[in-house]
């Protein structure tokens, strides 16, 4: 991979730091008038998700990371791995539980996800922003007064638990924003 110098660090650039692939979030140029220039860089470690701040001498460089985001269709899980397919080439990739991470609780078969590949293997999975899922379990529905705005927990068929309005029942299908985990509405 190419090396990137501090003046090429842009938000979204993927680089290697201490053996892990990272995505650059922010790069601030700092220079005392008569002094050494440096760059304060915020990066997200793509393996751990943690945000780090490092200060480099201007002109230092980091190796680019072989990281690429790709839309893929979720196929199935065989108990050990989660399988995703590239829609054009039909090439399949197996992702570990660690890579699937929190996406796990939202995934239904055939969903189109963003899979981040690192050296050709799935590193992380981002589910669709909105998913429609059936309620597997919740307290019995309370019909009538919906103006109160009360809510109750509901467990969805994929495992996630979401706060829903009181009138919903087991078997109802709801729309959820996976970025916030919030209920968006009932799907008729």
């Amino acid at each position: 991979m190419a090396n990137y110098s501090t003046n090429e660090f842009r938000s979204g650039l993927k680089v290697m730091l201490d053996g892990d692939p990272c995505s650059i979030l922010d790069n601030e140029f700092v220079k005392p008038g008569k002094g050494q220039a440096f760059n304060r860089v915020k990066l997200r470690n793509l393996k751990s998700g943690r945000v780090l701040e490092k200060t480099f001498k201007s002109g230092e460089s980091l190796e680019g990371a072989d990281v690429m985001d790709m839309d893929m269709q979720y196929l199935y899980n065989d108990g050990d791995f989660w399988y995703f397919m590239e829609p054009e080439s039909f090439e399949q990739h197996q992702a570990t539980e660690n890579a699937v991470g929190d996406a796990l609780q939202w995934l239904s078969e055939q969903d189109i996800c963003v899979v981040t590949l690192y050296n050709g293997s799935p590193l992380s999975v981002v589910p669709p922003n909105h998913v429609e899922l059936e309620i597997a379990e919740t307290d019995p529905g309370l019909r009538g007064d919906t103006a109160q705005g009360g809510s109750k927990p509901a467990r969805l068929v994929t495992g996630a638990t979401v706060k829903v309005p009181l009138f919903l029942d087991q078997g109802d299908v709801i729309k959820v924003d996976t970025r916030t985990g919030e209920y968006q509405g009932r799907v008729k």
Partner: peptide, 22 residues
Amino acid sequence: AAGSPSWAKENRANCLDLLFSL
């Protein structure tokens, strides 16, 4: 500690600049 491991070999003036600025 304030910057990154590459500062371990820097000269006095550069270390002072980094520490003063940060």
